[in-house]
Design a protein around this nucleic acid. Structure first.
Lengths: 194, 194
DNA sequence: TGTACATCAGTGAACGCGCGTTCACTGATGTAC
DNA sequence: TGTACATCAGTGAACGCGCGTTCACTGATGTAC
């Protein structure tokens, strides 16, 4: 074996990382293979040594983006491990996340485009959604029923993704104000009352 | 004036209508000017007699799509005028809407792509979002405070858009189940309790 | 230890193709007389 | 009423351009002797 064992995997990870950021910043269609390779410090043509098509890269990037979005949220909590569902939702619906799609949630940045993608992309997207729903359901208070926790996870994720999509469709100050309204809505919805 | 006064406006409306459907079905990037003109029954080259760029068409299509999405929701209520906020949300989060992005909400179908668009497109998108928020706030019970109505409108719209985006990212049966969870979440959130 | 070799990650130029846009032209229309 | 005309909505071919993909090649690497 003429090259160090991890070399190729490391290069591939660098390409996926560059793609994950570019994808969320510019969308699937507006990101070119050449651009991704350039930001990974490689030449255009080497791409097909790692992936058999752009599609495969997009699928890998969705999964990669999901993970660094989690890390980003963890940083907003200053490294404190995720507490409850409301805290998680509040961190997601922050001005910080609004301003930085490229390190944020891939669903909010490119959900509809991915849903129209190939089967490979749709599989990665579906897996990412399930992962998030499971994670959120796990953050719901233990005293609640499974049904209630599942419902709250679905509602919270819908508010997160929808809130961010809407806020990004408005000028910044309006978007920031809208996020505050959605946060208040979720706080009320997740409270103990109903 | 060699042509009937309304002729050009009618043709333009036909182009916008075709674009509004194609846009929601395939996204901004995957819809070509040629394809839109063909489905409007016109030839490719005539486009620039009506619009100065594809961008201008997309902006017009967003507004057009907003209106026929409203009509679609009205039909799901069998023509009954919109009642309260919960009914509206329930109609939006339906299996019917899940299956037919091309006549549904443009925010759920193309929100993130539009948010990355030109200023012209962003303006149309912002106007469409404000229109929907105002409409939803108006459907909230009168007895509630302005603050509460604004918050509920924001939360309901976030749940609608986010719920639909997520559901469309899952296989159909899972998506349908998720919509039911989000509907239950919104029902609880809009109840009188808190 | 030093050198020739086989491997394969990465290079860079080239390829079709489809897109948005342009443009010289056509032909259907209402108007003038 | 009928005919010549000016207008302008629509046609269809052509244009660059950037994209995803391919491919013959390069050169850095660990291995064999």
């Amino acid at each position: 074996v003429p090259w160090p064992a991890e070399h190729k995997a490391e290069t591939r990870a660098r390409i996926v990382g560059a793609a994950a950021a570019a994808l969320r910043a510019s969308g699937v269609a507006d990101v070119g293979v050449a651009e991704v390779m350039r930001s990974a410090g490689l030449s255009h043509g080497g791409f097909y040594g790692h992936f058999s098509s752009k599609d495969e890269l997009v699928a890998a990037a969705v999964t990669g983006a999901g993970h660094d979005s989690d890390e980003g949220l963890a940083m907003l909590r200053s490294g404190v491990p995720a507490g409850d569902l409301l805290e998680e939702t509040t961190a997601y619906l922050s001005a910080e996340h609004l301003a930085h799609p490229e390190r944020g949630c891939p669903l909010a940045a490119t959900g509809p485009e991915l849903a129209r993608g190939s089967q490979t992309v749709r599989n990665a997207l579906g897996a990412e959604i399930r992962r998030r729903l499971d994670r959120l359901a796990g953050l719901s208070p233990r005293r609640r029923s499974g049904t209630r926790r599942k419902r709250d996870a679905a509602g919270a994720l819908a508010c997160m993704v929808g809130g961010m999509v809407i806020a990004r469709g408005l000028p910044e100050s309006e978007g920031t104000a809208l996020l505050a309204d959605v946060r208040a809505f979720v706080r009320a919805a997740l409270s103990d009352r109903p």
